[in-house]
């Protein structure tokens, strides 16, 4: 044989699943919440989602082109960032604000730290927090059916009562994507079914919040359920806390992370000045990830009870 055969180190086969498949699944999982948001809040919400995604993708493309780096928009991670950021926007927001957020998320939070996989904060959430601080008033005015109103958690905080059924369906004021618990759960179940995420982070996160508000808030089922359905907890737990890059890679670390987020969220909601706290809890939690991983490395097979 004149031609030499290909030689490489084993394994010689690979799974078909690549990064863009995983990102694609996350996008698919957010569609129910996005569709519900657009249906409820109208065409402006659709425009916000579209432009936020476009802003993220274009930012990534231009940055990589200008720096002569390989263009990686095909991995769809910028689309995921854009969609999460868009779903975190109030439906009436002037579109330049989320566009600015998209640029911030991609350039400052993601690319300046080295691009995909290197950022230590969730880009969409960091951008949301940046916008919350910069444009506090515009970022926290919510309307539903033309009437502006307080979010259920704000009502709860000021001692009012809320309709949990409406919260579950999503007939409440809030950001485009956070309102419908049922739509988010459909997406979450899809991600679990496709094994894109495990239940460890969302499960422990939601459970911890439930226990925390039960103990330190009110010992009332309606109250606890309102806390679970409101304030983007479901959105955060399934779609933002599970962000691969900014959550622990070790199974035990994911459980610790979920509990930590639950404690922080409960702390912010019950004892903090604001009614909500999911975004800040996750962003803060992101900072603990390296530490959590360091102390939650799995015990190697056959090394149980032995020193490494």
């Amino acid at each position: 044989m004149s031609k030499l055969l290909n030689v490489s180190s084993s394994p010689h086969v690979r799974s078909d699943v690549v990064t863009s498949n995983l990102m694609g699944d996350v996008i698919i999982a957010m569609i129910p919440a996005a569709v519900f948001g657009v249906w409820q809040f109208g065409v402006h919400a659709a425009l916000v989602l579209l432009l936020t995604v476009a802003s993220c993708v274009v930012s990534e493309y231009l940055y990589e082109r200008l720096l002569n780096k390989p263009v990686t928009i095909g991995d769809l991670s910028a689309v995921v960032t854009g969609l999460i950021l868009g779903l975190n926007m109030p439906p009436e927001i002037p579109v330049w604000i989320p566009c600015l957020g998209g640029v911030f998320a991609i350039i400052v939070v993601k690319q300046l730290y080295g691009g995909l996989g290197q950022n230590f904060m969730n880009p969409a959430l960091a951008a949301r927090c940046f916008l919350l601080i910069s444009f506090a008033q515009k970022m926290s005015s919510f309307t539903l059916d033309g009437v502006s109103g307080a979010t259920p958690l704000a009502v709860l905080k000021s001692g009012g009562t809320v309709d949990v059924a409406a919260m579950f369906v999503g007939r409440i004021p809030g950001t485009i994507g956070e309102v419908s618990t049922v739509a988010l759960l459909i997406g979450g179940i899809y991600l679990l079914y496709k094994k894109v995420i495990s239940i460890r982070i969302p499960g422990t996160y939601i459970l911890t919040v439930a226990v925390f508000v039960f103990i330190f808030g009110k010992q009332d089922l309606n109250y606890v359920l309102a806390h679970l359905c409101g304030g983007g907890l479901i959105f955060g737990a399934f779609f933002m806390a599970t962000d691969y890059v900014t959550s622990p890679i070790t199974p035990m670390g994911q459980i610790v992370f979920g509990v930590l987020l639950g404690l922080l969220t409960g702390l912010f909601r019950i004892f903090g000045g604001s009614a909500e706290g999911v975004s800040y809890a996750i962003i803060l939690g992101n900072l603990f990830v390296p530490l959590i991983e360091k102390y939650t490395l799995p015990v190697a097979f056959g090394k149980e009870g032995k020193k490494a």
Binding site: N6, V13, S77, G117, Y244, S247, I249, T250, P251, A300
Partner: peptide, 24 residues
């Protein structure tokens, strides 16, 4: 395999969950 180009690690943790030796 010869045509596959490595891309950035996204820390998805799949390597951790499949490893029979329980390492990272």
């Amino acid at each position: 395999v010869a045509e596959m180009e490595p891309t950035a690690c996204i820390r998805c943790g799949r390597c951790v969950s499949v490893c029979p030796g329980h390492v990272v």
